[in-house]
Amino acid sequence: MITLHYFAGLRELTGTSQEQADLAGKTVEDLMEWAADKYPGIENASARVAINEEYALPADVLEDGDTAAFIPPVSGG
């Protein structure tokens, strides 16, 4: 299983901050498609994906036990 995190506006869009999904073996690109299917609009949020707390590339593959986070454009400072 993969643990997914949603933050800020994406937490409000999805109505959840964390969930589990059976996405092991899928790529980050697959994950985005899965999320867009489940939460229409998330694909327009300019979100990046982090795997295990590091920014990932679209072709990176999720492994069982990974944590993936949707990172909308940041606004710290």
Binding site: F7, A8, G9, Y55, P72, V74, G76
Partner: peptide, 21 residues
């Protein structure tokens, strides 16, 4: 402001919004 996953929501008298980009 580029890479650290921290988000700011501004709360105004007539609304609120997550700031990004």
């Amino acid at each position: 402001k580029e890479i650290v996953p921290i988000w700011k929501k501004e709360i105004w008298e007539d609304g609120e919004e997550w700031i990004g980009d």
